[in-house]
């Protein structure tokens, strides 16, 4: 399946392109990307969050879900085919689920705030924003850990090191012949 990961990447990019097109063609909302603050020059305000998401909320949610999928597919592409074991793919799948779960929590708690106007706080920020600040930062940590901890298993094994040394020696020999 991962032999054709490039097709998954292409499919994700084409889908995101189509979503951008759909968002561009959606009914417009005045000042959807902010308007000047009435009292403080230099500040923009967002005003009615529910109205800004009314026509594009679902499309935006899908766009970022696809982006997170694209990120994991690209990381899979970066690993040699022979090391894409079921263990590695399970780790990548878990990383994707983790990032999607954080994205869902951010989006749904924001939706909840838009409906109720109430929010609690976590470490200095309203809960939806805390999901964004801390969650997005932490969301890719499984990928970082897979790279660092799995470096000798998936990224650059001892065999790879030997093969590269041989390749370098061959290059030196070839240059001496020339």
């Amino acid at each position: 399946m991962t032999k054709n990961v490039i097709y998954w990447i292409l499919a994700a990019c084409v889908s995101m392109g189509l979503l951008l097109l759909a968002i561009g063609m959606a009914d417009s909302v005045p000042n959807a990307s902010g308007q000047p603050h009435t009292k403080h020059p230099g500040m923009l305000i967002g005003m009615d969050g529910a109205a800004r998401l009314a026509h594009i909320g679902l499309l935006a949610f899908l766009f970022n879900s696809l982006l997170l999928t694209l990120i994991v597919c690209l990381c899979i592409l970066g690993v040699s085919e022979r090391y894409r074991s079921s263990k590695f793919l399970a780790g990548m799948g878990a990383s994707l689920l983790f990032m999607l779960a954080i994205w869902w929590m951010m989006f749904s708690t924001h939706q909840n705030f838009l409906q109720t106007g109430d929010t609690s706080y976590f470490m200095g920020f309203p809960v939806p924003t805390a999901w964004q600040v801390y969650g997005t930062w932490l969301g890719a940590i499984p990928l970082v850990m897979m790279y660092s901890c799995g470096f000798r298993k998936f990224i650059y094994t001892r065999d790879d090191e030997e093969e590269f040394k041989t390749l370098l020696e061959q290059a030196v020999l070839d240059s001496q012949k020339d």
Partner: peptide, 24 residues
């Protein structure tokens, strides 16, 4: 955060004043 929220809640919510597509 609470002061910003009281002034304009979107500014301190996850997509800020510039909106969801600018952020994403």
């Amino acid at each position: 955060s609470a002061i910003i929220l009281a002034d304009d809640s979107e500014a301190i919510m996850p997509f800020g004043s510039a909106g969801v597509m600018a952020s994403l």
